[in-house]
């Protein structure tokens, strides 16, 4: 325990004796951790958007006006039993008419058509949500079956809302994920090289002390330990500062995010606040992990004990 404490003490001394070098290292590691966080943030936003859009995907099935709402309800119950179906919602003829009337694009046209016909020309409809995106094709297959096909409006009876947009977004998000992974590796490598170089300089400036340590019987671990402690201090400080820096930055950017994602439940600041401990833990793990790895590499390469 005494030895560990002394290694920490010597590591701390290393940090302060080369304070400018330490500060520059922490700043550059911070910058890289920050960029890694931004890249990961973009990734999270992509995923969140995908989830938000997925929630808006559904299959709308419009039945002929001659089919009774009771029959539509029965079909809905039958479909709800299918393994691919998550939920089925029945919309009555009146509700469909009201929805169209409320739509500013078609409102006046519908009103005049209803006035001319003297009755509601719309049928009831079903709003089906599948458990997975692949499920929509299967559900559409069931609906094309003779059992149901005759009841459905032959013109635009089956409409997959937002499915295409979702598929496009999924492709984009997947590409972003791939690019993000490479960028994280790239920034991680820069942080690794930076700490590696700093530890190399530390070893060089303390070669006299290292020689004396060896001379008076210091173990290998005792000679190496303080350099690992110093690098962990770089990683720890950089990761904590990066997390702290993210708070005002996200607070500032959050209204712009909200504006951009209007209508979708994407809350970047809320996500950050809700996952603060996980994010901090991740930053510390990445920062300290990189620091330890680079210091061990530098020690192995330059510190001859």
């Amino acid at each position: 325990m005494t030895t560990l404490w002394r290694m920490i003490k010597f590591g701390y001394q290393n940090f302060w004796r080369n304070i400018w070098l330490s500060l520059v290292t922490v700043l550059i590691v911070m910058l890289n951790l920050f960029l890694m966080s931004v890249v990961m943030g973009v990734n999270v936003v992509g995923q969140q958007t995908l989830i938000a859009v997925k929630q808006k995907v559904n299959l709308s099935v419009f039945f002929l006006p001659t089919i009774s709402e009771q029959r539509v309800g029965e079909i809905g119950k039958e479909l709800a039993l299918k393994p691919e179906v998550a939920s089925v919602k029945v919309t009555t003829r009146a509700e469909n008419l009201q929805r169209l009337k409320n739509d500013p694009r078609y409102g006046s046209l519908v009103k005049s058509a209803v006035a001319e016909l003297g009755e509601n020309p719309l049928g009831a409809s079903l709003e089906i949500k599948a458990k997975t995106l692949d499920g929509y094709a299967t559900i559409a297959g069931y609906l094309r079956d003779k059992k149901y096909a005759d009841f459905i409006d032959p013109r635009n009876g089956i409409v997959a809302d937002n499915l295409q947009a979702n598929n496009l977004l999924a492709t984009i998000v997947h590409r972003i994920e791939l690019a993000a992974a490479w960028l994280i590796v790239f920034f991680g490598l820069i942080a690794l090289l930076m700490i590696f170089n700093t530890i190399r300089v530390n070893i060089y400036t303390q070669r006299e002390e290292i020689g004396i340590m060896k001379l008076v019987g210091a173990s290998d671990a005792f000679v190496r330990g303080p350099f690992v402690v110093t690098s962990i201090m770089y990683g720890l400080l950089a990761s904590v500062l990066t997390t702290i820096l993210l708070v005002p930055l996200l607070t500032f950017a959050n209204p712009y995010f909200n504006q951009f994602f209007a209508g979708y439940s994407v809350d970047v600041l809320g996500y950050f606040q809700g996952h603060l401990l996980i994010i901090l833990g991740l930053e510390v793990a990445v920062g300290c992990g990189l620091a330890m790895l680079s210091s061990l590499l530098a020690i192995g390469r330059y510190l001859r004990v």
Partner: peptide, 18 residues
């Protein structure tokens, strides 16, 4: 070690030995 006092220089040998 130039940055350590005489006491610290001698103590250093004992410190590294735990």
């Amino acid at each position: 070690l130039p940055k350590k006092t005489l006491f610290e220089n001698v103590a250093f040998a004992l410190e590294v030995a735990g």
